[in-house]
């Protein structure tokens, strides 16, 4: 059963100042099956975050439909978890309260919230930091809280908008490994937006390569590489070469269009 379905999505922004319309996304159709880990790969400005925001319900397509679990998306909601590029934690709440924020909204008692949060605190490896405040956490730890907060809602799908982009290389690698472990354990559907080819290839079961201005789906690549992924293996490099070629062609075409 398809978990997420994007059908003929088109997004046009009207530029009032210049009195013309800007085609940001041009007729993108994409389905994500259950328990799939889809990486949306593209350069900045290709509309990958816009597509993710449409699944989240923050933005509406000009044309086309978005459904999650068969139901059309009509706004943000707790059936989808979201992890942002900045962790966006409530700075006035300690780690465990941030993770259990969804339960606070549902009116759970404090003791119950605390107990429910513990499972996810352990899952993302934040034991001992339960009572820390966001200002006392490193970037990597903040993102762990963000991930735990999304997982606690037990959502059908988790949307991730370049969550590791601001982390240093070592932390990024650790977090990628842990995310894969969590995904394997929790069995959920993940849509992960990134501009890094390596990251997409390390994480995804599928990679959707988007082209920019307007954003179109260039190619969808199935990854059957064994886990944990070996970033030096020939097959990994074959995929990488193929994707880099797609991106290079794209850049060449754009420059020709611009020159003409």
């Amino acid at each position: 059963m398809a978990s997420i379905e994007l059908q003929n999505i088109t997004k046009i922004y009207s530029d009032a100042k210049r009195k013309r319309d800007l085609l940001a996304i041009d007729d993108v159709s994409l389905t994500v099956e259950r328990n799939e880990f889809l990486c949306m790969l593209g350069s900045s400005g290709c509309g990958k975050s816009t597509l993710l925001n449409m699944i989240a319900g923050f933005e509406k397509p000009t044309k086309g439909t978005v459904t999650v679990g068969g139901k059309p998306v009509d706004g943000p909601g707790a059936d989808r978890g979201m992890v942002f590029q900045q962790a966006n934690l409530m700075p006035w709440l300690p780690v465990w309260e941030n993770i259990a924020f969804h339960l606070r909204l549902k009116g759970w008692r404090k003791a119950d919230r605390r107990a429910a949060a513990q499972e996810f605190i352990d899952l993302v490896g934040l034991k001992g930091f339960e009572n820390h405040y966001p200002a006392e956490l490193s970037g990597g730890m903040s993102q762990r809280v963000g991930i735990a907060r999304a997982l606690l809602m037990n959502p059908q799908v988790i949307l991730m908008d370049e969550p590791f982009a601001a982390l240093d290389a070592q932390t990024k690698m650790d977090m990628q490994e842990e995310l894969v472990a969590i995904w394997q354990k929790q069995r959920c559907t993940i849509v992960f937006v990134t501009h890094s080819v390596d990251e997409a290839l390390v994480l995804g079961t599928q990679v959707a390569v988007l082209t920019s201005r307007p954003g179109r789906l260039r190619e969808r690549i199935e990854l059957d590489l064994p886990r944990p992924r070996d970033i030096t293996s020939p097959r990994f490099n074959d995929h990488k070469r193929h994707i880099l070629n797609l991106i290079r062609e794209e850049g060449l075409q754009q420059r020709q269009v611009a020159a003409a």
Binding site: A78, F84, H102, L105
Partner: peptide
């Protein structure tokens, strides 16, 4: 933060 909270329902 408002986005994050509305994403949590």
């Amino acid at each position: 933060l408002i986005r994050a909270a509305s994403m949590m329902g």
